[in-house]
Amino acid sequence: KWEEIAERLREEFNINPEEAREAVEKAGGNEEEARRIVKK
């Protein structure tokens, strides 16, 4: 599940997989929260 979210974030925000994974981890697997983290 987290991998899927990280993949979507990576494609959408054009970030590297590591950044995407970190955002999802910080968000506890919550996609909306992960998006907010990435946008900062």
Rank of each mutant, 00 (worst) to 15 (best):
K1S: 14
K1Y: 13
W2D: 05
E3A: 12
E4N: 10
E4A: 09
E4M: 11
I5L: 08
I5C: 03
I5T: 04
A6Q: 07
A6G: 04
A6P: 00
E7S: 10
E7P: 00
R8Y: 05
R8E: 02
R8M: 09
L9D: 01
L9P: 01
L9K: 01
R10F: 06
R10T: 10
R10W: 13
R10E: 07
E11Y: 13
E12L: 09
E12I: 09
E12R: 03
E12H: 06
F13Q: 03
F13I: 02
F13S: 02
N14Y: 08
N14M: 13
N14T: 06
N14E: 05
I15E: 02
I15D: 00
I15F: 03
I15Q: 00
N16R: 09
N16V: 08
N16P: 13
N16I: 08
N16F: 07
P17L: 15
P17D: 08
P17M: 15
E18N: 12
E18Y: 12
E19H: 09
E19D: 08
A20E: 01
A20W: 02
A20L: 05
R21Q: 08
R21W: 14
R21A: 10
E22K: 08
E22A: 05
E22D: 13
A23S: 04
A23I: 11
A23W: 05
A23R: 01
A23Q: 03
A23G: 03
A23Y: 04
V24E: 00
V24N: 01
V24P: 00
E25R: 14
E25Q: 13
E25I: 14
E25A: 14
K26F: 08
K26R: 10
K26V: 09
A27W: 01
A27P: 00
A27K: 01
G28A: 10
G28N: 15
G28K: 14
G29Q: 03
G29T: 01
G29L: 03
G29M: 03
N30H: 07
N30R: 05
N30L: 07
N30S: 10
E31L: 13
E31G: 05
E31P: 06
E31S: 04
E32Q: 09
E33S: 07
E33H: 14
A34T: 01
A34R: 00
A34D: 00
R35P: 00
R35Q: 04
R36H: 08
R36M: 10
R36L: 14
R36S: 08
R36P: 02
I37Q: 08
I37T: 07
I37P: 02
I37L: 11
I37M: 09
I37E: 08
I37F: 10
K39Y: 13
K39N: 11
K39G: 11
K40L: 15
K40G: 15
